[in-house]
Amino acid sequence: MSSDAATPAATSAPVPRQKSTGLHKGDIRPGVEKVDPIVIADGVTRTFGGLTAVDVDHLEIPRNAITALIGPNGAGKTTLFNLLTGFDKPDKGSWTFEGRSLSGIPAFKVSQRGQVRTFQLTKSLGLLTVLENMKLGAKHQRGESFWAGLFPFLWRKQEEEFEAKALELLARFKLDTKKDDFAASLSGGQRKLLEMARALMSDPTLVMLDEPMAGVNPALTQSLLEHILDLKDQGMTVLFVEHDMHMVRHIADWVVVMAEGKVVAEGPPDSVMKDPAVIDAYLGAHQDVDLGVVTGRIAGEVPSEAAEALAADIEQEQAADAAAFENRKAGE
């Protein structure tokens, strides 16, 4: 496609925002209690044959904060996402959303309760126009029942409201000029934007984004980041899976690290990335140590000097990041 909506975020210059802090109670450790959790999961396990994809003892997601879920490929992040949203059923375990149990609730009801997700492989509805995609996201549509659908006067007014709201969101995501095009004609990055915008049509309380930045160019990443930060400003809670550590460090208030299906570490981004377990399991200080050692499945030693070296690297990189960020701001 010729025009990626990703004109460098000139209009919305990134403003560094205050991170949410003080989200947890007591010492930081995997499964730490949160001051105000929106999702609480207990003993959730999911096995595929002999493989335990997810085995989470206890996990709480803080409300009105941006939580990143990171971990190596095959760590069970997406499976956990699928379990929490009802797209998959766990072998055992329970979890609540806003204090109400979500175990065994089908995916569409989970979404109706305000927990809306996107997908790692973007699911735009190709042969619907961008505007139709958006309007589909709205909840409580009168015209979505068969008999009412036959009589436009019952739903036309509501439809106009949804259309106005959809256009407003599309303008925010810079897709308004594409509203009458088929979603299939959008570029990959634009589809990511559309999927996120569509999820927002339902006014969710918890937005779950599965790799929102995968395959998105850097300029568009910048505007997507802004959109995610905006969600928090509007009072939503965000949980996202991501491999881009710059992004995680930049926007996440809290980071949960998974490896081999377990939560191996969590905490604020700066401290969690210095955690040797994280460096071993994910960031990759030394590839010669078995992942099982890190998760405690196999007995073994984690050499500490390598971990420290990597931590120093990260710090350096972080400083360079911040400098680049300042430069860009100065340039605008």
Binding site: T85, F87, P106, A107, F108, K109, S111, Q112, V116, R117, T118, F119, K123, S124, L125, G126, L127, L128, E132, N133, K135, L136, G137, K139, Q141, R142, G143, E144, S145, F146, A148, G149, L150, P152, W155, E159, E195, R198, A199, M201, S202
Partner: peptide, 24 residues
């Protein structure tokens, strides 16, 4: 041409996406 038909065409394209938007 009603929202009902829109949901149906959405299901034709990708039913998981429609499910994630809260439709049965």
């Amino acid at each position: 041409r009603s929202p009902w038909g829109r949901v149906l065409r959405g299901i034709r394209e990708d039913e998981d996406a429609v499910r994630s938007l809260g439709k049965n």
